[in-house]
């Protein structure tokens, strides 16, 4: 673990949020918030696969869990900000929207974008994960063991 303050902490957080958003959601919110800015592709959306590694119990030796499909792209706005997006699945339109939001967040309109897209999206994601956790909790079975008094 690296010590010190991570300069990219905020950017990591919003890129993670954009990558986890449901299909089509970021594009819808972006179009509702503003007209899409002009941009040029540094890397048009492309689909590939990447190896996901895991550790048994989170602490064991690393092993290859399996491959997952990934879409990535990079673009630059006319004002020079560079936006990247990496997300799971075959979702080129979503990757474009996520990269646009990433680029806009580094420019002057970051406050507008944060209020219109990132904050509602974070609330939606938190609500859906709470709902899912609630459903899972409802199926929890409590086991009561009778003391048999053998010892």
């Amino acid at each position: 673990m690296k010590d010190g303050i991570d300069k990219n902490k905020d950017r990591k957080a919003w890129m993670s949020l954009l990558a986890k958003a449901p299909e089509g959601r970021v594009a819808t919110m972006l179009d509702a918030a503003m007209a899409r800015p002009e941009f040029t592709w540094l890397r048009p959306p492309e689909i590939g696969s990447t190896m996901v590694r895991g550790r048994a119990g989170g602490t064991g030796a690393p092993f290859n869990l399996g491959e997952v499909t990934v879409t990535r792209c990079a673009l630059t706005l006319q004002s020079g900000e560079v936006g990247h997006a990496y997300l799971q699945g075959r979702r080129k339109a979503d990757a474009e929207a996520a990269a646009l939001v990433d680029a806009l967040m580094q420019g002057p309109s970051s406050d507008t974008v944060r209020a219109a897209i990132l904050e509602p999206l974070a609330l939606e994601c938190a609500a859906s994960s709470t709902a899912r956790a609630g459903k899972a909790a409802a199926t929890k079975v409590e086991f009561f063991t009778m003391t048999r008094g053998e010892d």
Binding site: L42, A74, T76, G80, V82
Partner: peptide, 10 residues
């Protein structure tokens, strides 16, 4: 990050 290191690909 400067864009000029990101351009110049195929």
């Amino acid at each position: 990050m400067q864009a000029n290191t990101l351009t110049g690909g195929f």
